[in-house]
Structure formats: C-alpha cells, structure tokens
C-alpha cells in the first residue's frame, strides 16, 4: 500500500510550523485564504522568541509545542491530535509504532501530517513496500525519505507529529478575538520554555535581541534568521489586521501601528548585507538596527494595549474557567 499526496506543496515563507499547517489544510480544503490569515488566526504570527546568543533555534523555540499549537489549531475549529516526546524514553519504540500507524491513517484519508524534521515539515506520502515516509521541508523540491524505523530520530532528540481531522465553523469575529488573546499572552509571558531562561518571548524577546546584537558575539546565521522571521511575521500581522478592519475601532488603531512598524522593515532589511554569499548583520549598522527595533517595540506595545481593551469587553471563558486538572495540561 502506498499514498502520495501530489497536491500538497509546502513552501517556506513564514514559520516552519505555519508553512506546514498551511500546506496541509489548504490541500485538504480545510482552510481557504492567504497564509497571513492562517498565521494571524492561529496566533503563530505573534510568536516571537529569541535566544541570548541569537541561535537559529530561537525561531521555533516559542514554547512547549503542545501548549502552543493546540490552541492555535483549536481557534480554526479543526480537530487535531498530536504526540511528542523524547527518543531516550524507554517506551519510545512503542510510541513510534503508534505514531507511524496514526500518520498512515491520516494519509489514507488524504490529509498530510506535521512532522519535526527539524524544523517542521510535512509528511505527504508513504510506501509500505519500502517502509518509508515522504517528507517535504519546504526548501527543497525533492522529498526527504524517512524509514518507518527511523521515525522521530533526529539530532534534537525529540520527536513530534500532528494530524488533523474534521472542522466546525467558528464565527470570524470570535476567531479574531481569540487570536488577539493569544497575542496578548505571548507578549506578556517572558519565558515560555521554563525552567530555561535563556530564551525570551514576546516583549522581552526584543530586549534579548537588542542585547545580543549589542554584545556582538552572536550567532551570525541565527541573527539573520531571527530578523527575517520577525520581519515576515510583522508584515503578516499588518495584513491580517488590515483584513479585520471595521470590527473594533481599537483594532483599526492597532492596524495603523503595525502599518508604521511594517514601514520600518525595509530600513531594518538594509542593515543586513551579503558577505561572501551569505547574508549577515552589517556590524557597522548595528546601532541603527537597535534603534529601529526599540521603536518597533514601542509601537507593538501600544498595539497590544489596544488588543487588551478589546479583550476586556468580552468574557474570556477559556482563561477564567479553571479546568479540573488545573491550569496546565494533564500530561
């Protein structure tokens, strides 16, 4: 038995998770619209995390994935099931077997699967004869091949996959409201991967980014990757809020603020130059870049306070009702 989803094409433009989900959901007809809409509704565009040394892993280290991705997909009204863990756990071979079966059944239904390669990619086919999965990373047109036996094995020592199911319709306004609340939460939580405090999130991520650039001993590739991802996300937020115009006046004001922020992006981009075929932060323009980022932080802070005003007008059952198991997921 083999399945190969031809229509599923992943393209790296946004965060790898957003790109993966977008490719899967649009191919399965579970989502219609541009990528920035998905990025905004899931709250993924608002996720911003930076490691002290500006390591490239910052971009996907925006929290415990289960806790971040579940509310994101929930807000779209789509059923999602995921599993993840560490390969060193004794029971990993059994989880691996279960995961392989789950991925295959999802592909049998014609729906791709999010998989940690790393970074996130899409499983878009399998072949029982060769016992392999076909995986797209969004960068190369060629599929990567992973043996069933090697599912989940990678240099990061953790594994992750996520499958999707049916969909219910949620009112557009409710989805937007929830996405703003996700954005507020991300902005206000300084550390999302506690007990580690070397990766900051939201408002504090700006501080880490500026400090890292100022110190000078940062990871050159990581710095560019973080900035690129940051600039893409801000453009996405602006476009997303632009589409949501006319519901709340505060949201229109927030859109104006993100518009100003997005207008600064070309100047930020100018602070990155090509050096021996590789883009690097221009060290002679670091001060200028920090200045721009400081202004951007202020604009974003004001926009988030507008979000808070909108959020305060409606009851927030998700965050005010404490479930039986407390405020954490029962894992």
């Amino acid at each position: 038995m083999s399945v190969f989803l031809q229509d599923l094409v992943m393209k790296r433009e946004s965060k790898s998770y957003t790109d993966s989900v977008y490719a899967i959901l649009t191919a399965a007809n579970l989502f219609q619209g541009p990528k920035y809409l998905l990025s905004g509704l899931t709250g993924m565009a608002f996720k911003f995390s930076v490691h002290q040394q500006l390591l490239p892993m910052s971009v996907s280290a925006y929290g415990q994935w289960g806790n971040e991705h579940k509310p994101a997909i929930d807000n779209l009204g789509i059923l999602t099931i995921f599993d993840a863990g560490r390969v060193r756990h004794h029971t990993f071979p059994y989880y691996q077997q279960e995961a392989v079966n789950a991925v295959k059944s999802s592909l049998d239904c014609g729906i791709g699967v999010v998989y940690w390669i790393p970074e996130f990619g899409v499983i878009h086919g399998y072949d029982d004869g060769d016992r392999v999965f076909y995986i797209q990373d969004g960068c190369s047109e060629e599929s990567q091949i992973v043996l069933y036996d090697n599912f989940g094995l990678n240099f990061t020592t953790f594994w992750y996959y996520q499958v999707f199911g049916d969909k219910v319709d949620i009112a557009r306004q409710d989805m937007i409201l929830e996405s703003l609340r996700l954005a507020i939460l991300d902005w206000e939580t300084p550390f999302r991967t506690l007990p580690n405090t070397d990766i900051a999130s939201g408002k504090l991520a700006y501080v880490y980014l500026c400090q890292g650039l100022k110190q000078g001993s940062f990871n050159t590739h990581g710095a560019v990757y973080i900035l690129d991802s940051y600039m893409t996300a801000r453009t996405e937020i602006r476009d997303y809020l632009g589409d949501a115009q006319g519901i709340w006046t505060e949201l229109d004001e927030a859109y104006q603020l993100y518009g100003l922020l997005a207008a600064m992006i070309p100047r930020m981009n100018d602070c990155i130059r090509a050096h021996r075929g590789e883009r690097q932060v221009d060290l002679s323009r670091v001060d200028e870049l920090i200045e721009l980022l400081t202004q951007a932080e202020l604009l974003e802070d004001q926009a988030i306070s507008h979000f808070r005003h909108i959020s305060a007008r409606y009851p927030d059952l998700k965050r005010t009702t404490i479930p039986r198991w407390g405020s954490h997921t029962p894992r």
Partner: peptide, 9 residues
Amino acid sequence: GQVMTRKPF
C-alpha cells in the same frame, strides 16, 4: 534505555 540508533536504508 540505550538511545535508539538510526537504521540504514
């Protein structure tokens, strides 16, 4: 608890 090693194609 030995870490699983990658299998060859």
